[in-house]
């Protein structure tokens, strides 16, 4: 005999008998959609990095405009760093189609893999996000400080405060990402615990 209360039984019936629209797609249409799906995903991923792409365009313009060789080298390094950053995000951080064997992974296993991927991305920002931008920023700081010391007697008076500001920003970004990575790790631990209890 079922131990279900009449109320909960009613909720189940309500759930199961609700009106659905039905996905009106033939197998042939699904096949065609699956073929074009990859391009749709790539377009969507690229849209997520529209700000980074706009910055690359801006820095390219500055690169082209700059007369000083050192400034050009700085902008060039920043552009290279941003290209690497986008490539890294597209290959590691973006959404990819579900693997064909997704049905072999339980929901916990799948979520765990997703969370691990996000955690690793967040905890390694120095390597793929901040690191690649540092050489370009350092060269630019030096070039600007050297070329425009303003009313100060020595370029170091310009370079050092700006460099410190840049370092503080980098450390803050790394700390925020580290905190987010630890939060994801707690979620991973919760999943492990949920799967282990027997």
């Amino acid at each position: 005999m079922s131990d279900e209360s009449p109320q909960n039984q009613r909720m189940k019936e309500l759930w199961q008998n609700q009106k659905t629209e039905g996905l009106r797609m033939t197998v042939e249409q699904i096949r065609v959609s699956a073929g074009t799906f990859h391009h749709k995903i790539q377009a969507r991923n690229v849209r997520e990095y529209v700000v980074a792409i706009a910055l690359i365009v801006f820095f390219s313009f500055e690169f082209w405009r700059a007369g000083d060789l050192l400034v050009r080298v700085g902008f060039g390094l920043i552009i290279a760093g941003m290209v690497y950053l986008i490539w890294h995000m597209l290959s590691k951080g973006s959404w990819l189609p579900l693997p064909k064997d997704a049905g072999l992974s339980s929901c916990i296993e799948f979520q765990r893999r997703q969370l691990e991927q996000q955690r690793d991305l967040l905890s390694s920002v120095w390597r793929w996000y901040l690191g690649p931008l540092i050489p370009g920023m350092a060269v630019l700081l030096f070039a600007f400080g050297h070329a425009n010391p303003g009313h100060l007697k020595h370029p170091a008076f310009v370079i050092v405060p700006e460099a410190m500001f840049f370092v503080v920003i980098c450390v803050a970004i790394a700390m925020l990402n580290g905190r987010a990575a630890r939060k994801l790790q707690r979620q991973i631990d919760e999943l492990d615990e949920a799967g282990r209890q027997s």
């Binding site: 996905l23 197998v27 699904i30 096949r31 959609s33 699956a34 799906f37 189609p97 579900l98 049905g103």
Partner: peptide
């Protein structure tokens, strides 16, 4: 639609 495409692809394996 995404679920249906994922399902169809997955049934290959």
């Amino acid at each position: 639609q995404e679920i249906h495409i994922a399902l169809w692809r997955s049934f290959g394996g």
